[in-house]
């Protein structure tokens, strides 16, 4: 007896779901829903649930990764409108010192210091950098690199804001759960917030500025005011991280202006994949735990860390996120052909 031949063909789920553009989905089955939601929901669920299972040192690592993650997202927003920044530590430090000063000298509660430092830090940094948004590429980067050093020197020379000793004995979060979950929820909110911002028409204009600023000007858009707005958003995000860390460690000192806070987010974005917020977020979730894991190596820690960075960038120049995204889009199901 002859067996009925069953014809099958492979189908990429991606092709079936995406209709013409990246933002319009056609969802036909529970499988499709799972395909669309899984990469968004699963990592977030892991991040939200992890602190329930690990404690102490490990939850500190999660907090640190989220702080670097916020800085990396802030860097990515500036990069997407063509501003190459080396000054994430400026935004971070301004937020940290603002929250610290309000706590130390004005004795304001945490729920005032953090929001005010977030918006105030954003506004101050946008104001400081407004005159240089005309600069592009390496020239803008140079200015952002110098400003944190300038701030540090001013504090040191004039002995203001605690001088070389910093501001210590600041208010802590009322409990450790609020501490942990504030930064995790903020990180996830900013990640998805910026993602929807950049796909909106507003974000499209920002990306266009990076592409060709003269064409944007000839389309009747004041590119300088748009860049200052982007600076305000990015600086607010990083200032929030700074204000958070001030209350987390109950201390604000020079270390917040250190180059680490500028380089680590940049490295995270580069390893994770520039040009996407998810890449920057993923990069920091990988790099921070990695650098902690390498502590066991002692003196060789930085050498190995750098070697891994170089290897990652050489092996996957598109970034880990883009690589995973591509592989995920190649996911196929077998369907019967009738």
């Amino acid at each position: 007896m002859q067996e009925a031949e069953v014809k099958v063909r492979k189908r990429r789920l991606e092709r079936a779901i995406k209709a013409r553009t990246d933002t319009v989905f056609v969802i036909a089955s529970p499988g499709d829903i799972l395909y669309v939601l899984a990469p968004r929901v699963v990592p977030m669920a892991i991040l939200l649930l992890l602190p329930l299972f690990v404690g102490g040192y490990h939850s500190k690592v999660i907090v640190h990764a989220c702080v670097v993650g916020l800085l990396a997202l802030s860097w990515e927003l500036l990069a997407s409108c063509g501003l190459f920044s080396l000054g994430q530590s400026l935004f971070f430090g301004v937020g940290a010192y603002m929250a610290g000063a309000m706590d130390k000298y004005l004795h304001l509660p945490i729920w005032v210091t953090i929001p005010v430092a977030t918006l105030g830090g954003g506004a101050l940094c946008a104001l400081l950098l407004a005159p240089v948004v005309r600069l592009r590429g390496v020239y803008f980067a140079m200015v952002t690199l110098m400003l944190p050093i300038l701030f540090k020197q001013i504090i040191e020379a004039w002995g203001i804001l605690g001088g070389t000793h910093g501001l210590s004995g600041l208010t802590a979060f009322p409990n450790e759960w609020l501490d942990k979950y504030l930064i995790i929820v903020a990180f996830i909110t900013v990640l998805f917030g910026l993602r929807s911002l950049i796909t909106s028409d507003y974000g499209l204009v920002l990306k266009a500025i990076a592409d060709d600023d003269r064409a944007v000007m000839s389309a009747g858009i004041n590119i300088y005011s748009r860049k200052v707005q982007a600076l305000f958003i990015a600086a607010s995000v990083a200032s929030f991280a700074g204000a958070f860390i001030t209350h987390h460690y109950q201390f604000a000192g020079f270390s917040v202006f250190a180059l680490d806070w500028a380089i680590l987010p940049l490295a995270a974005a580069a390893v994770g994949g520039t040009g996407s917020f998810a890449g920057a977020a993923l990069g920091s979730m990988i790099l921070v735990p990695l650098s902690e894991a390498l502590r066991a190596m002692g003196g060789l820690r930085m050498a190995i860390y750098c070697a891994i960075l170089v290897f990652a960038v050489l092996a996957l120049p598109e970034g880990i996120f883009r690589f995973l995204e591509r592989k995920y889009q190649e996911f196929e199901t077998v369907i019967e052909v009738k």
Binding site: T21, D201, Y202, V205, D212, R214, A215, G220, I221
Partner: peptide, 21 residues
Amino acid sequence: RLFHNMPAYKNLIIPLCSQRV
């Protein structure tokens, strides 16, 4: 001078976001 990484129709969104329009 166009925005080469965007879909063609998205290029027109930029002037449509201007004050004038």
